[in-house]
Amino acid sequence: MKAAVVVFPGSNRDGDVARALRLAGGEVATVWHAEDELPKGTDLVVLPGGFSYGDYLRCGAIAARTMIMDAVRAHAARGGLVLGICNGFQILCESGLLPGVLMRNANLRFICHWQHLKVERTDTAFTRRYAPGQVIKVCVAHGEGNYFADEATIGRLEGEGRIAFRYCDEAGNVTADANRNGSLNAIAGVYSEKFNVLGLMPHPENLIDDLAGGTDGRGLFESLVARAA
């Protein structure tokens, strides 16, 4: 599986996600933001976490307007896989590849903590290696992860089964306490219409190792590698 990790100025979890992909058996290339095409044979494009262009405008807004994103949009239109994590999710929303916006966290502060997620469906390219209804432990680290969309959009996302993950407690209960950034319907990640684009706020790439928190994030990368193999 050939993955291309796009590096914007200010990306800072590009190395973390590359490590997770390699561990799962993926082949990883990095693509500089100023380039205008993806490496030949790219199966998966990853927009990593960080603060692209400093996030000095709205998070992800500038990155969404770079040339490389035209190539990413074309890749997605062809049915290619795209994964946006944290800042990458924000970029996907800003670039129109996913609906909705990510507002400031409900408490108006940056938050970094362990977080449980409910895997909503396991029949997508991103989640095949998880068990139906599985609760996984990942981490979050963001100031603007509060997912919002208008009522019609949320209704459509729910109706089409496009919610990828929801914030929940250890037992899998979707509670207000477990949804600390205040996202609508506790949404932690959403799919595109064709389920080939996934954006999520939490960081599965930091949960690949028993010594550093656990290995619940591996399933996502293993699913992707298995799917493209």
């Binding site: 973390d16 502060r109 970094c112 960081h203 930091n206 190792d209 010594l211 550093a212 928190g213």
Partner: peptide, 29 residues
């Protein structure tokens, strides 16, 4: 306080804030 700090980036934090000393793994150990 420390929930406002990203203490998990780089994926090498073996002991996060709250211990006697923090532990970070050196690269892949």
């Amino acid at each position: 306080v420390w929930e406002q700090y990203d203490h998990l980036i780089l994926g090498n934090t073996v002991q996060a804030p709250g211990g006697d000393a923090a532990i970070v793994r050196v690269e892949d150990g």
